[in-house]
């Protein structure tokens, strides 16, 4: 199954670079931390430090658009079979349980590739900063999605 969305031109694709996300906030609620630790098998800590996966959860939940909206922005839909590319998480300062973080970010690259077996696909990368209440950047999350494109 593929979407009805047309494959973007290279110019349209490259125009995505620099596009800023609306951003938003993410609260690291204690109940969410407990359940997350339980799911991934991490220890339940009492020192108020959140698991570093919350760098990722905060970034993705606070970027201000849904994953489906992200796909639409990139001229695709879930039906096109987008895949995770790379995931890069920098934990500059541990996130704290109970704190509310601000998220900001933008698309940093968008390139077209041609694979012998895979055909045409685009890689769109974005960078998100998770900012603590004191204004310091606690985490930087860089992700990329791979979008298979129909033959033109």
């Amino acid at each position: 199954m593929t979407s009805e969305m047309a494959t973007p031109t290279v110019e349209e694709l490259e125009a995505l670079v620099g596009r800023q996300f609306p951003g938003g906030t993410y609260a690291i609620e204690p109940w969410r931390v407990w359940l997350t630790n339980d799911v991934i098998g991490a220890p339940q800590r009492i020192d108020g430090i959140a698991h570093p996966m919350f760098c990722y959860y905060a970034a993705m939940a606070g970027l201000g658009i849904s994953i489906d909206e992200m796909f639409t922005l990139c001229y695709a839909s879930a039906d096109d079979g987008p895949m995770f590319g790379e995931c890069d998480i920098q934990q500059l300062r541990p996130l704290k349980v109970g704190a509310t973080y601000t998220v900001r970010g933008e698309i940093t690259s968008a390139v077209r590739k041609q694979g012998e077996r895979t055909g045409t696909f685009d890689i769109v990368a974005f960078r998100l900063e998770v900012v603590a209440p004191d204004g310091g950047v606690s985490s930087i999350v860089s992700n990329s999605f791979i979008f298979p494109r129909r033959s033109e």
Partner: peptide
């Protein structure tokens, strides 16, 4: 000695 010691992790799925 604690996951807060992770400064950076970069992976492919």
């Amino acid at each position: 000695g604690g996951a807060e010691r992770i400064r950076q992790i970069r992976v492919r799925f």
